[in-house]
Simulated scan of single mutants.
Amino acid sequence: MIDNKINILFLSWRDIKCPKSGGAEVFTHEMLKRVDFNKYNITHFSPMFEGAKEKEVIDNIQYIRRGNILSVLREARKYYKDNKEKIHFVVDQCNTHKFFTPLWVEKKKRIFFIHQLTREIWYANTKFPISTIGYLSETPTLRLYRNDYTITVSNSTKNDLLDIGFNKDKVHIFPEGIDFKPWEEDKLVKNKGDIFGYIGRFVNYKGIDAAVKAYVSLKKSKPNIKLWIIGKKKEKYIKEVLLPILQENNISYGSREENKDITFFGFVSDSEKLVLMSKMKALLFPSIREGFGLTVIEAGAVGTPTIVYNSKGLVDAVDNGKAGYLCENNTPENLCLLMKRVMENNNEYNMMAKNAYDFSLRFNWDSTSKYFDSFINYIKGEK
């Protein structure tokens, strides 16, 4: 580490190259790669994964990987102990798991970073007794950090933290960003087909099954509609959760080469994802909880509004229903009603698509990085 810079250690359970990385890891990397490296020295510490290098520099960020999901706690603590005199701040990034830095890092150096609370996701994604243990332990472990400076990404999460005792003056919201410029308005697809879409991971709490059920219901009155599902396929989820719904309702499905009711695209490049999103009438995002919902902003930036569940994080991503469709009740039936409205109320749809596009203009990673710099300057002055 270089002594004449502000040395910051980020602790996380995943990094940008981890096969299980998601929006939180993208946020961290995109924010940090834009900082002034004449001022900052950034080290990111996380567990090893198959095929990973123990050390590498990516976009001027030093990535260090040691241990596994359990032993990384010990390894991180050892690394900090060996370098503590040079480290100015330690950022404990909570992505369900935590590093418990209040137990071993001085208060003046601690920063907590959390995108979302897990809450009901424990019951959606894990089985008893892990689900109950995770749910009951979340609040008391989070309270360890209640007096630390805290970074989050939405009012939804900030309010959750305040509800369990965090200091409102120490919780700072950083804006999300997108890594492309919103398309020029004259390049947006004007005459979209009757296509709805889902983009994301194949996990229970994201609600792909709700999207499929809503699609099945709407297809009874709108037989020509299509559903595109984009994201790395999880065959077990498809077989156990989705196929029974499709087979019971005689819904055809297949790959992009086939003209089926539902198309599973699998993983696609970022550029292709934007093209596919731009052709959708609306994106469906029936998740029970998110940190924010960056895909909603990406869709808006290519002219496509999103129908979301009335869930923490997603409420913020559609600007409380002004820049996207917000379900009154988090059910496939309510999702279906809004899909029908999208197809039948052109004036409202055009207004919502315009609002989603205009809202997307507020989000870019350069702004996020500037927030980070201002935040560090502020708390450095406070020390």
Rank of each mutant, 00 (worst) to 15 (best):
residue 282 A to L: 06
residue 123 Y to M: 01
residue 253 Y to T: 06
residue 138 E to V: 07
residue 92 D to Y: 03
residue 20 K to C: 11
residue 284 L to C: 04
residue 133 I to P: 03
residue 286 P to D: 02
residue 36 D to S: 14
residue 357 Y to D: 09
residue 331 T to N: 08
residue 110 R to Q: 15
residue 57 V to P: 00
residue 232 K to I: 01
residue 373 D to V: 02
residue 250 N to L: 11
residue 360 S to F: 08
residue 98 K to E: 13
residue 76 A to W: 08
residue 94 C to Q: 12
residue 322 K to G: 03
residue 301 A to W: 04
residue 300 G to R: 01
residue 279 K to D: 02
residue 27 F to M: 08
residue 314 L to M: 10
residue 148 D to S: 13
residue 15 D to R: 04
residue 150 T to A: 05
residue 93 Q to V: 12
residue 63 Y to L: 12
residue 274 L to S: 05
residue 265 F to Y: 15
residue 275 V to W: 00
residue 293 G to M: 12
residue 150 T to Q: 03
residue 188 L to K: 13
residue 37 F to N: 03
residue 241 V to E: 15
residue 94 C to K: 08
residue 348 E to S: 01
residue 42 I to F: 05
residue 21 S to Y: 06
residue 238 I to N: 05
residue 190 K to G: 03
residue 27 F to G: 02
residue 155 N to H: 09
residue 247 Q to D: 10
residue 237 Y to A: 05
residue 138 E to I: 12
residue 253 Y to K: 04
residue 52 A to C: 14
residue 62 Q to G: 00
residue 239 K to E: 15
residue 254 G to R: 08
residue 137 S to T: 14
residue 327 C to H: 09
residue 295 T to C: 06
residue 361 L to N: 13
residue 292 F to Q: 03
residue 65 R to E: 05
residue 2 I to P: 00
residue 176 E to K: 07
residue 49 F to G: 04
residue 298 E to M: 05
residue 60 N to K: 12
residue 152 T to K: 03
residue 47 P to Y: 13
residue 200 G to C: 13
residue 318 V to C: 12
